[in-house]
Design a protein around this nucleic acid. Sequence first.
DNA 1: TAATCAGTTAGAATGAGTCTAATCCGCAAG
DNA 2: CTTGCGGATTAGACTCATTCTAACTGATTA
Lengths: 148, 148
Amino acid sequence: MIRNLTEQDKEHLQEALVKSGQKVTPQREAVFTVLLAERDHPTVDEVFNRAREVMPGLSLATVYNCLETFVGCGLVRQVNHERESTRYCPNLAPHAHFRDKETGQVHDIELPPEVMKSLRSILPPGFDSEVIEISFLGRAQAKDTHSN
Amino acid sequence: MIRNLTEQDKEHLQEALVKSGQKVTPQREAVFTVLLAERDHPTVDEVFNRAREVMPGLSLATVYNCLETFVGCGLVRQVNHERESTRYCPNLAPHAHFRDKETGQVHDIELPPEVMKSLRSILPPGFDSEVIEISFLGRAQAKDTHSN
DNA sequence: TAATCAGTTAGAATGAGTCTAATCCGCAAG
DNA sequence: CTTGCGGATTAGACTCATTCTAACTGATTA
Ligand SMILES: [Mn+2]
Ligand SMILES: [Mn+2]
Ligand SMILES: [Zn+2]
Ligand SMILES: [Zn+2]
């Protein structure tokens, strides 16, 4: 695990950072690598602990900073469930989140455009929404090993 | 404002509490009254401040306790947006929440059963969800005085 | 009356997240 | 090369919503 970024991932990272006037740094690469390695919606602490394995001097503050930067330039999404610690998701496709009440795992749920449309359609006139968050809470049959 | 509970509201409160083995108390009545008076999704502090006007000795801890009790027996829903303070909503009909980015106000959005169904339909087999939370973020034309 | 027990209360504790101020470091000008 | 600059990193202090604790209240019961 924590295999390296592909060239494509590196370009993605660099482009998004540079486009918003920021730099690629070893810390940012390490944090981004962690996010792409296991798409299990880790918390800041989980990202921190995983990233430290490959960059021991990394600080928690920097992990917060990197993740904030990534959110700011659209590289990752924040995922909140009730009052739990914020989690991070590098899946840029429109999707909802399903949290397993038993395991706490968070799964991505694909969100077809037709459903998005039906959601937008329930807004009364005068309401304009940029962001729609959808989260399910329930139980998922543990039939996959790869957490996503 | 803070008009009294109707008989129907009192019964609703009493039934839900008794059904889950708890008692009607003056504090719980006061907090519930506040929630029904202005359906603007107040935070704990807002509930606290409004309820104190009519019951000056009320403590913040008790407001937390009452609200937790109400959530536990299904009288109100918690509403979270990102990491902001939790808000409370006594609207038991299925609905989504729309938060106005400008004003911070939270509005209820009716959720037709057909939309609920289309949402459930996007869950892959093996995923069973009891709770679906939908929240919009955007701007609402300020065309109504009654906050809802 | 005395015991019981849920509810209330003030204040301490928790902990995710934010802020601050010092340091680091890559790069460009001199 | 040195030096200066500015963004990035860092440790640790701080915030503040929420939770916890332990004492108290007050109604009900034995
Ligand atoms: Mn999965
Ligand atoms: Mn309204
Ligand atoms: Zn996701
Ligand atoms: Zn509501």
